[in-house]
């Protein structure tokens, strides 16, 4: 993956597949502590202890169509390469939280990349599900909740290209200054 925002999109797709009706995606940036945290928290079906133990093995997947599952291994690899780690908490019937930490300024830290693009992709392609997107950057916060947007749209689907285009520009404008603090050298 060239950008961490691609990992974010990829891992959030697992939440969608797990039937999560509300998924919270958080980007935490703390430049003083040189810390970047990406968190995907869902209320999907969760994993058994057995699955949880094997889930970062690239040759383990619950899918029956193929024998590899690379999403979580790649995310863990990205975190560990950049001075951080990935943790997974999961409970069957409750949900799963995947959290990866990274050291800001680490030479092997991939760029965050197009985070708004990833969020809008998720929302647009899963218009019946809800997402909370939160950025906390050095004490400043931005938050978008699709339930609020759904209220404004009054039946116009979140999958409409025109709505997706607006959301993309809206997110870009509101998060650009917060997210660019991750480009710490």
């Amino acid at each position: 993956m060239q950008e961490l925002s691609m990992n974010l999109l990829d891992i959030a797709q697992n939440s969608v597949a797990a039937g999560s009706k509300l998924t919270e995606i958080t980007v935490l940036i703390d430049t003083a502590r040189r810390s970047l945290v990406l968190r995907i928290a869902d209320c999907g079906k969760g994993m058994s202890e057995e699955t949880l133990r094997r889930v970062t093995d690239p040759f383990y997947t619950t899918r029956t169509t193929r024998k590899v599952g690379l999403g979580l291994p790649l995310f863990r690899e990205a975190a560990e390469t950049a001075g951080g780690k990935m943790t997974i908490r999961s409970k069957e019937g409750v949900g799963t939280t995947v959290e990866a930490s990274f050291e800001l300024g680490n030479i092997d830290l991939p760029p965050l990349g197009d985070v708004p693009g990833s969020i809008v992709n998720l929302v647009q392609c899963n218009p019946e599900l809800d997402f909370i997107f939160r950025v906390e950057s050095d004490g400043e916060t931005f938050c978008m909740d699709t339930r609020e947007i759904r209220g404004i749209l009054q039946g116009v689907p979140l999958s409409s290209p025109e709505v997706a285009l607006f959301l993309r520009e809206y997110l870009e404008e509101h998060t650009e200054n917060l997210l660019k603090r991750s480009n710490l050298i």
């Binding site: 993956m1 060239q2 691609m6 999109l9 990829d10 797709q13 599952g69 690379l70 999403g71 790649l74 197009d114 693009g117 990833s118 809008v120 992709n121 647009q124 392609c125 290209p161 997706a164 285009l165 993309r168």
Partner: peptide, 20 residues
């Protein structure tokens, strides 16, 4: 296609371009 393979290969900008 938006699985891990698609995303890694650049599916997101393609989906965004169609939307636009």
């Amino acid at each position: 296609g938006m699985a891990t393979c698609g995303i890694a290969a650049g599916a997101r900008p393609v989906l965004n371009a169609f939307t636009e």
